[in-house]
Amino acid sequence: MNQLSRLLTTLSLAAREQHLVQLLELNERTAQFGLTLAPEDVRQLMAARSETLRHYGRLETGIEATKELIEAFAESPFINRDNYVSALHELQELFYHLKNETEDEIGDSRLIEIMRDCFDRECGGSLELLRDKMEEYAAAYRFEAMRERLDEGEDDE
């Protein structure tokens, strides 16, 4: 395997504990909505994240995106104690999928904001609907980006 994965393998153990602590610290903020994660929840969420990143061919050295997802969706009226952990798993997977589908053109915060807005408004808290709507959004985004690129190409000529 290449030098990048060797580097990451050497260092992933050290980072894992650090990530656990950072995510557990978020409980202090989400507790006001009655939502907290147990250490085991965090471990599973991190394991799922690693698998998702691997599956989508992405690399993330920190856990900023997961932290932002937790903070944004904990405020949603459609997230409660019963669906919190499973929703985070789904949202995390959808987020990285959308990063690829929008060709990294949309920043993390903006993408999470769009997801949260769509989830609360158009989808009425349905994760299934959110996935469909966001797929449509990503396709339209790619089409628009391609048209812009073609226009720019024509201008260059």
Binding site: L4, R58, L59, I63, A65, K99, D104, G107, D108
Partner: peptide
């Protein structure tokens, strides 16, 4: 703006 990138990047 993004904390992750594709593995290629």
């Amino acid at each position: 703006e993004s904390s992750s990138v594709s593995v290629d990047t």
